[in-house]
Write a protein that binds this DNA or RNA. Structure first.
Lengths: 194, 194
DNA sequence: CGAAGAGTAGGACAATCATCCTACTCTGTC
DNA sequence: GACAGAGTAGGATGATTGTCCTACTCTTCG
């Protein structure tokens, strides 16, 4: 590959800092220090702080899409893929305990700021929602696919929020286990149902 | 009763603004304008912004405790009271769609700010957790009472986060209905179980 | 070599922030 | 009616913010 351009470095550092500290609480100075660049020089790469936010959200959208695409090529079943999604909570448990869910916390911060980019951030949720709906459709739950997708998202947001508050890993594992059992019962009922 | 003192006005206005705009994004000027008081004069009532935050959290703790106490005196069953808790999502749906859950969003904001009052804000969660645990114990689920309490909290946090993102009232009602069914099954299993 | 343009350094800029101070106006008491 | 103390007004302060400008250093290509 190639070395990261300064612009790419800014975006990836800002991504991490926005996640850890929040968007508003992260200043140009913070990013500049982390990238080892002059503060005032940002103007050359990004006209405004909002432009950096847009770039960060777009990067997250791209990365997420790539992750989901890769899952699709693994020869697993739709059920396996949903399980993989649920288990992100375990995989990323350390970060989630420390900073919550990157999607949920960003969305709710931007909502409070009445920020123009709120709609963009919501696309991250929509990306997962659409993908999950697709998986449930493939599972044969076409009629309820969207409801089921939202239910999975609800669960993961709830777990992330409480994990962040209580730093309780046992709680996370217990809830994930329950969710996996729920998924099994959804699949079983689907075959019994008709 | 008596008219609200200036101090009480500041606290209740700050409470509302911290909820709607977030703590960091709310300035002294915002609060001063809403209370119709001179900005610089805050120092007389509160030494620092953090002191206002403490007062706001304490007020929320008191109000919440009062609400729960009142529920306890209604002659309802523990199951009714848990249902009442779950249905806060419906009662406050407008505010939740607009600003999320007051407890969850504050806790996660303070976590990102590494703010000293994070522990205080967490007490709001703990208050509900302890109360719910108590209700489940009364229901006869003593062994799992804390797990069940956390499960209810997880659910309500997840619904609040997604309601804030998607502004979807049907989704809220559907999830609340599912949660009530889940509660019924918990109660039923408890009698079958032993 | 020398011109051009990409990228950078460093600081200026006005705005906004929390904080703090001093001078003032009430209100009640002796 | 004088005094004390609670409460207020309004502005000063220094720090920090996002933004913007100008002068500089590279690299590239003729």
């Amino acid at each position: 590959m190639h070395n990261k351009t300064t612009r790419e470095q800014i975006v990836s550092v800002a991504d991490e800092l926005f996640y850890r500290q929040g968007f508003e609480h992260t200043s140009f100075a913070d990013i500049a220090e982390a990238v080892q660049i002059s503060r005032g020089n940002f103007y050359y790469h990004f006209k405004t702080k909002d432009d950096i936010l847009d770039a960060v959200i777009n990067q997250r959208l791209t990365n997420t899409q790539n992750m989901l695409d890769q899952w699709e090529m693994n020869g697993e079943t739709a059920a396996d893929r949903i399980r993989r999604f649920i288990n992100i909570l375990i995989t990323n448990r350390r970060k989630i305990k420390a900073h919550g869910c990157p999607v949920g916390t960003l969305t709710s911060e931007l909502a409070k700021l009445s920020h123009a980019a709120k709609g963009e951030a919501n696309k991250l949720f929509s990306l997962f929602r659409t993908w999950l709906r697709h998986q449930f459709t493939e599972l044969g739950c076409k009629k309820d696919a969207d409801d089921l997708a939202l239910h999975v998202l609800t669960f993961s947001q709830g777990v992330a929020t409480l994990a962040n508050a209580f730093h309780d890993e046992k709680f996370m594992r217990r809830e994930v286990k329950q969710m996996e059992d729920w998924l099994d019962s959804v699949i079983a009922n689907k075959y019994k149902g008709r």
